[in-house]
Design a protein around this nucleic acid. Structure first.
Lengths: 154, 154
DNA sequence: CACAACTGAGTTGCACACAACTAAATCGAC
DNA sequence: GTCGATTTAGTTGTGTGCAACTCAGTTGTG
């Protein structure tokens, strides 16, 4: 392959991933509009519905987001009345995010989201599970590479 | 599948895509730091290196980005001395983006990027091409679904 | 020609994402 | 017990991404 071909391939790959990510975001935006949630806010709510109350730190680990992203996001969820933030008594540094009644109730209305997303992808269950596995492997490899780059850069 | 299982699957899928996209972004950020480019700026430069000067409108079509994103981005590239913006004489509404000498020269230094990205993914050429095809199909389906949603919402 | 509809860029406002930083609380070595 | 290192949130600044808007220029219709 020539250098030019490599650049073209890179354009295709990085563009297609970028585009797929934004297309997903766009579909979620449309579907989540009724719930008054953004895509990242929905991710936070999914974790809370699944795992119950969590400190911001744990939320960040689950979602791989840092406090710079999570702090204002959780504040907006609090402003919408979906969660409550409470400083832990044991460790005053830690802030635990609780679902409010309204936040817990929103789960019922969110139940239709996955099916609508699934049908939007045009994929069947097997393909979705397969895609999930591929993306997980890819992310693991990329994280390892980023780690290696960071070490190399010093 | 129960409702709870659907929600869990949705969390897994939307999270894994989100995470993969950010992991890619992160690796590109590290590799592009030397070139002084962000990931979207690199996408713009790739298109310009490949296709030559283009009006902002065409750039937007190629990258599926609107003027709200492109205008400030191109201005930053201009500030970095990589491109020049010139209003078309034929159609005063149109602004054509030209590579400067410096911008054209940057291509030489960008030639190593694709190989570094490829090795970061841990995928071979066949898998990358396959991934590209899958993502294209997925994006097409998602775009069609978004279109349908938008029509339904009226 | 006149004027309404459209088009291409650009601006504004909002919500991530992330780097770099601060501040407060906790932990650990001594 | 004290003081420095670490940990947890939060803040600030930059750069997207997108909706909604403005503005200037162009086009189509009568």
């Amino acid at each position: 392959m020539t250098d030019t071909e490599w650049l073209r391939l890179d354009r295709q790959i990085c563009f297609s991933l970028h585009a797929a990510s934004r297309a997903f975001n766009s579909v979620y935006r449309l579907i989540l509009k009724d719930l008054g949630l953004t895509y990242p806010q929905y991710l936070v709510m999914l974790v809370l519905w699944e795992q119950g109350d969590l400190p911001v730190k744990k939320l960040g680990e689950r979602l791989r987001l840092d406090s710079g992203t999570l702090s204002p996001l959780v504040k907006r969820l609090e402003g919408a009345g979906l969660v409550r933030r409470e400083r832990s008594a044991q460790d005053e540094r830690s802030v635990r995010v609780h679902l409010t009644e309204e936040g817990a109730a929103l789960r019922e209305r969110a139940l239709e989201v996955p099916r609508r997303i699934m049908s939007s992808t045009g994929l069947d269950l097997t393909e979705v599970v397969d895609l999930h596995a591929r993306l997980e492997r890819l992310t693991t490899a990329l994280d390892a590479a980023a780690e290696a780059e960071a070490r190399a850069a010093g």
